[in-house]
Design a protein around this nucleic acid. Sequence first.
DNA 1: TTGAAAGCGCTAACAG
DNA 2: CTGTTAGCGCTTTCAA
Lengths: 330, 330
Amino acid sequence: MADVTLKKLAEMLNLSISTVSRALKNHPDISDETKVKVKELAAVLDYEPNTYAINLRTNHSREFGIIIPSISNDFYQSFISSLEEEARIYGYALIILQSGNNQVTELENLKRCKQNRMAGVFVSITSNTSDISNFLKLGEQHIPIIFFDKVPAFEACNKVCVDDYNAATLAAEALIAKKKKHILSIFGNPQMSITKKRLSAYEETFKKYGSNANVVIQTTNSTEEAFQMVQYYLNEKDRIDAIFCMSDEILIGTMKAIQIMGLKPPADVGVIAISEGIIPTFYYPHITYIETSGFKLAKMAFLRMLACVAGSSYVQELKIESVLIEGGSL
Amino acid sequence: MADVTLKKLAEMLNLSISTVSRALKNHPDISDETKVKVKELAAVLDYEPNTYAINLRTNHSREFGIIIPSISNDFYQSFISSLEEEARIYGYALIILQSGNNQVTELENLKRCKQNRMAGVFVSITSNTSDISNFLKLGEQHIPIIFFDKVPAFEACNKVCVDDYNAATLAAEALIAKKKKHILSIFGNPQMSITKKRLSAYEETFKKYGSNANVVIQTTNSTEEAFQMVQYYLNEKDRIDAIFCMSDEILIGTMKAIQIMGLKPPADVGVIAISEGIIPTFYYPHITYIETSGFKLAKMAFLRMLACVAGSSYVQELKIESVLIEGGSL
DNA sequence: TTGAAAGCGCTAACAG
DNA sequence: CTGTTAGCGCTTTCAA
């Protein structure tokens, strides 16, 4: 069966193409009688407007691009999942592009977004991306860009991210409230701005409360390293009484070590993490964590995008406050 | 800066639009001299063809749709991640549509794929989808459909999935090899074909080997239920010596129960699962599992899709063999 | 070797 | 209230 087009409908009804077009969109100029006739036939023939023609004509599509280092990450997963839901509700489609944390691929993906004249692009940059001039170029083409999570330091762009100071502060406060005295605190790659922010807020909080706790700060790049590190500290004579994990990755290594030694939180050692929220439920008791939810962030990013698409031209930096979720491990 | 079009290039070079178009695509009719001239200017002005116009003209796009119950699932995540990589390499974009395991949403998504004249669609159906006539309609529009993972029972369609018989057989064989005698075997929703297949292969294998093991079969719908169930069985006098988990979901509940009771695999109880492969590494020792990798499945599905796009019209059912990954928990 | 022209399906300004 | 017309940017016959 060949495609049903406006032309075909028009011919069958002995109307002009424009009348049919208008009738279908409820244009006030068209008589009710005609509207009914047209709509009926369209329904019968299962007419569907040709998206390509509409795109060409209007010079934009209802597609958003999203460029992320990798989809294999609980945070991005929840972000995407949530974003797709919103997008669908508003009649937009979501196109996923992974950069593999590689700047070259990231740029290629950006180019695709430009070529395909996306309605807008969400970006979480790679850890090496410093020059964002290429991203800003899309702005000239009136393609709004919303940076989320891993955002550039550059000021004049739309950003939506987790409030890292807030998250780390909450974690420190929870440890202080539980009167922990010997705390192993494991942070991620010290080069990343996320680590810097969390670390400084964490340390400041202990100072602010005049805590006398012995806070050991360590950094690591992998689950495996965290695993080794925690084993080492748990074997010391003056054993630590709590562990703070800056990320899910670190939490996984930490819990492996705790399990191999046959220890049980919170009695043997307290555990608290900053997490997306899935991993903490894999253990018993659930891990107490500071939530950095991709869901909420996605809702916020999407709202900002809608505003930009609608013409908002000013730039905003939005932050999401975290909350403490008690799991029983601290 | 306004968009650069063929027309603009043609005017600037005093050539016709068609000549410019042909020069850009290396048409043999065009002289080398002209080609160079045109390409140079195009490069300088950063000419980019208008995708919308091309789509309209050629009546197809380089976009694949993928409809899944939810992206929040390790298996789909690895599948999508892998599929996106392949797609990008071949110049295709991937559009994600979640059905939320809801048939109505699934149908809406399908409609979108049709409306947007996707080059092809990958589908993993909801657990309730039985009527796939709507999917097959896309075939009439020459939009190939590849079903993966959760595939319909209906014969005449392209399917790519895990070999469930094989996976369950491997698990049973591993348990027999370890001489386990009292095995709690937890399966998922008994309505789903995946459960039926795995269960029958599992039971058959014990029979085939003439095993005298006491194999307790249970089914469950959630992590929480599995958690309760495992606790119950671990508290019995004649305690089980191994647990088989049909899915990651079940494995998580199982491990929670094992942890709360302070038991350590494999000495206290053996554990084996059918899994995507991420979750088993969260525990120590790693869980021994039968791998059902989304990565491999995606590569296969993509190849099949390319063939279909290229015109292959016959229907195939492809299966992926699983492998046993020793983690140390059995 | 190049150009002219038609047309993909739709929208919208303009004219009746 | 309805029709005519031009045109979005590109591809592709057909003609020169």
